[in-house]
Design a protein around this nucleic acid. Sequence first.
DNA 1: ACAAATATTTAGTTTTGTCTAAAAATTAAT
DNA 2: ATTAATTTTTAGACAAAACTAAATATTTGT
Lengths: 218, 218
Amino acid sequence: MTLSEEDYIKAIYHLGKGENKTVSTNAVAEQMETKPSSVTDMVKKLSDKGLVNYRPYKGVSLTEYGQKTALSIVRKHRLWEVFLVEKLDFSWDEVHEVAEQLEHIRSEKLIDSLDRHLGFPQVDPHGDPIPSKKGEFKKAVKKLLNEVPIGSSGICVGVKDSSPPFLKFLDKNKIALGDSITVMDKEEFDGSLHIRIKETNIHISNLIATNLYLKITE
Amino acid sequence: MTLSEEDYIKAIYHLGKGENKTVSTNAVAEQMETKPSSVTDMVKKLSDKGLVNYRPYKGVSLTEYGQKTALSIVRKHRLWEVFLVEKLDFSWDEVHEVAEQLEHIRSEKLIDSLDRHLGFPQVDPHGDPIPSKKGEFKKAVKKLLNEVPIGSSGICVGVKDSSPPFLKFLDKNKIALGDSITVMDKEEFDGSLHIRIKETNIHISNLIATNLYLKITE
DNA sequence: ACAAATATTTAGTTTTGTCTAAAAATTAAT
DNA sequence: ATTAATTTTTAGACAAAACTAAATATTTGT
C-alpha cells in the first residue's frame, strides 16, 4: 500500500460515514482535493488489488478487506491524536494535521505499544471512537446536551449558538471543546441539568443545554 | 523537501561521518541501496536546490543549508528513538526501522513537544548525541571501557570479545547493550574498575573492561 | 421521450524517482 | 605514457500519481 492508496481508502471510508455506502467519483475527488479523472485511475488500481468494488459510472465502495484497511488507518489516526493531546499537550484543533502524517507509519508493534501507553483509550479528543485492533468499535452520535440521558457522558464537540455572550458564558464556566461532560441529573421543573465536567459538578439551565453538542458513544 | 530528498541528505551526512566530507556517487548509491545513475540525477536536483555542492566526477558534499537539514532529520530520528525505548519499551535493536519512518514527520511543534516530554535528552539509546534545535551537538566517540577516564559515563554499545563465557558474565552482572555506565574509580594495582550501572556499583576486572565498548559524548 | 445539463471515463501529458545500457572521465598498472 | 580497469555520467524508458481536454454515460426537466 502506498501513502496515496491509503488516503483514498480513508476518503472512501469517511464518505461512506462508517456505513459501507457506495460513493461517487466526484465526491471522492472533492474530499481528496483532486480531479475526478485521477480518482477513476486510482479506483481502478484499488479494485485490481481487491480493496474496493468499482463499477464504472456507478461508484465505488470498500470490500471487506478495504474496510479492514480503513479501520486500521482510522485506529492509528485516533490513537496518535490521543497521544498528542494527552502526552504532548496539543490542543484540540492542532492535532489533525500531524495525525494525518503519523497515521501512515507502519509498525504493528508501535501501535500496540502506543495503545497500551495511552491506557487503551476508547475515544479520541473529538469524541470519536477508536477501533480495536480487530476493527471493532462503537458508533458515535452527536446530540444536544439536553437530549443526553442521565448517566451518559460525552465529549463537547460544538455549539449551536456561537454568539459572544454564549461563548463568554462557556469560558466563564470553564467549558471548552474537547471536555468530557457527564449528565448527573435533570430537574423536571425547568429542564436544567446537573453536569460533571473536569471533576467538578455544575448546574446549567435548559437553554444552555440546548446549545451545546456532545459526542456520545453508545 | 520530498521523503527521498531527505533520505539522500541523511545518507550524504552519515557517509561524511558528521564531518562534512565530500563523498562519491558510488558510496551514496551503496548506502541508499540504489544505482549510481539515480544518485547522479538526485544530486543534481539537490544541487539546484542549494542543499549540496556537486562537481561531476568529483563527488558531493552538503552545503551549510544541507547540513542544517541533515541535523534536523538526525535530531528527529534520535528523539523518536528515545521515545520508543523510554516510553514504549522498545528494545535497543527494534527502534531503528520505525524511527526511519518517524523522522520524516513534519511539525516543529511536535518535535519541540516531544523533546520536552522526554526531558530534553542529550543522547539516543545508542549513545549518539541529539542535535539541539539550532543544530548544535557534542561529538561522540567509541572507547574501550578501560580507556574511559574516572568520572566519565557513556552508553554500552558493543563487545570486543563475543565468546559465550564473556556474554554469560555480562548477563550475570546485568550489563546489557544500551546501559549507561559511569566509571567511579580505578585501582592502580590491577587496573580493575569500580563502575556504576543502573544505580548499583560493581567492581570489574581490567580484562572485562578491555572488552566492552562505551560511547562517550565529550 | 428527448434535449440539456451533469457526471464520469478515456486519451494523452507531466513530474518524480527509479532503472538499464552505453558513453565518457578518472584512476591504476605496466 | 599509454592501455586497462574502474567510476561516473548521459540517454532513453518505465511506473506512479497527478493533470487537461475531449468523449461518453447518466440524470433531469419539460
